[in-house]
Simulated assay, not measured.
Amino acid sequence: MKVTPEHNERMAKMTFASVYPHYVTKVERKGRTKEELHQVIQWLSGFNESKIKELIDDNVTFKRFFEEANLNPNAHLITGVICGYRVEEIDNPLTKKVRYLDKLVDELAKGKKMENILRTA
């Protein structure tokens, strides 16, 4: 599926705080924890617990979220399909980063081992 400019714009304007509760619900429904979710977010972004809370409280957009992030150097190892899009084929850098996060959350919810999710195995 091809990512459109409108889709990229929508991703940039979407707030992390609006999606975060859905991430929590998704992983907890599958028996994973909020702490594991935070571990995944921290691995990808470099944000600690207090920074994650601050970004939620400040209602930051994904654009700002990833501008402030220190993206993990192994993020490029995140591949596969998420929401109908093949991550490695997404051209827009911001949309690709958002989909990286979506893919990690999806892997967590599907019960993958943390070392595989964090690309350390």
Rank of each mutant, 00 (worst) to 15 (best):
R29A: 15
M11S: 04
T120Q: 13
L44C: 03
T33K: 05
I56Y: 14
A12Q: 02
I52K: 08
L94R: 01
K13V: 04
R119E: 05
N8C: 14
V27L: 06
K112V: 05
K2V: 10
V81P: 00
K26M: 15
K96R: 15
E35R: 11
T33P: 07
L44K: 02
M114C: 09
R32Q: 12
K112Q: 14
N70W: 04
H38W: 04
T79N: 11
Y23W: 14
D57V: 03
K13D: 11
M1L: 11
R119H: 13
K51Y: 07
R10S: 11
V19Q: 12
I82C: 09
E6F: 13
A17E: 10
E115Y: 11
T120F: 06
W43A: 10
K112T: 05
K103D: 04
I82D: 05
D91M: 10
D58Y: 09
F62D: 00
H38S: 01
A75H: 02
T120S: 12
N48L: 02
V105R: 07
E36L: 02
L108Y: 05
L71T: 11
K34M: 10
K110R: 15
K113H: 10
H76G: 12
A17D: 08
M14L: 14
L104S: 05
P73Y: 09
Q42A: 12
R86V: 14
L101E: 05
T25R: 14
R32V: 04
C83L: 14
V27D: 03
